[in-house]
C-alpha cells in the first residue's frame, strides 16, 4: 500500500483559527485557569485512548459476530458503546458502512477534516489535504487507484462526506483465509486506511 505524495500538506497550522486557538490558550494560561503542562497531560490522555486499534476491534467483532455486525450497521454509536467505546463516541454519532464485493465505501470531509479521531487515531495529513478533500468526491476511483486500490469497474463506490455530527467508520471485507483467527488476530489485520476506505484489508 502506498500513500500519495502530499503537495498540499497539512495546512491547519497556518489557518486563522489555529492562531486564534493559540491566543486563547495564552490568555487562559495567563489568567491562571490552566497551565501548559495541564493541557499537555489532557491531550496525552486523549490521544492515548484514540488509536486505530479501537476501530479495528469493532471491525473484528463485526467479522466474527453476525448479530453484532447488524447492530453496528444499524446504530454505530450504540454498537461502539457495547465494546466500551462509549466515551470515545460521545461527541458525535457514529455510522458504520460495510464494504462488500460489489460496493466500496470511502470517507472524506470536504468542508474541513471531520474524522472519528477517537476510534481511528489522529487523521493522516493527506486526509486533511485540499487535494484529497476535493478529489475524493469528484474522482473517487482515481483517488483509490492512487492509494494502490484498483477496484473493478463493477464495484460501486460510495463516498461519505462527513459532518461534525456524523462520523463514519468503514467495515472492510474480511480477508479470505482468516477463518481460524481469533478476534485479536483479526483486529491486527485491520489498517487505518482500511477503516477510512482508502485500502482493502
Amino acid at each position: 500500500m502506498t500513500e500519495p505524495a502530499e503537495p498540499h500538506a497539512h495546512q491547519h497550522e497556518s489557518l486563522p483559527v489555529a492562531a486564534r486557538v493559540r491566543r486563547l490558550e495564552e490568555r487562559v494560561i495567563a489568567a491562571g485557569l490552566t497551565t501548559d503542562a495541564e493541557i499537555d497531560e489532557l491531550l496525552t490522555r486523549f490521544y492515548a485512548d484514540a488509536a486505530p486499534v479501537n476501530g479495528a476491534r469493532i471491525v473484528a467483532r463485526a467479522w466474527t459476530d453476525e448479530e453484532y455486525r447488524d447492530r453496528l450497521l444499524a446504530d454505530g454509536s450504540a454498537a461502539a458503546a457495547e465494546l466500551g467505546f462509549g466515551p470515545q463516541t460521545s461527541g458525535f454519532q457514529l455510522r458504520a458502512v460495510a464494504n462488500t464485493p460489489g460496493r466500496h465505501n470511502v470517507i472524506v470531509c470536504t468542508l474541513c477534516s471531520c474524522y472519528p479521531l477517537s476510534l481511528l487515531g489522529p487523521s493522516p495529513s493527506w486526509y486533511r489535504s485540499l487535494a484529497y478533500r476535493s478529489q475524493a468526491v469528484r474522482e473517487p476511483r482515481a483517488v483509490l487507484a492512487g492509494f494502490g486500490l484498483d477496484l473493478p469497474a463493477t464495484t460501486r463506490i460510495d463516498v461519505w462526506d462527513s459532518t461534525s455530527e456524523i462520523r463514519y467508520l468503514v467495515v472492510p471485507v474480511r480477508p479470505a483465509g482468516t477463518d481460524g483467527l481469533r478476534p485479536d488476530e483479526l483486529a491486527a489485520l485491520v489498517t487505518r486506511n482500511g477503516l477510512i476506505g482508502t485500502a482493502a484489508v
Binding site: R138, P140, R156, I157, V159, D161, S162, T163
Partner: peptide, 18 residues
C-alpha cells in the same frame, strides 16, 4: 445520496452527504 454522474457528468461512484 447523490450520483456522481449528476454532480460531475462523469464517474460512476455514488456520493453521499450526511
Amino acid at each position: 445520496r447523490f450520483h456522481g454522474a449528476d454532480l460531475w457528468g462523469c464517474e460512476t461512484g455514488g456520493h453521499r452527504h450526511g
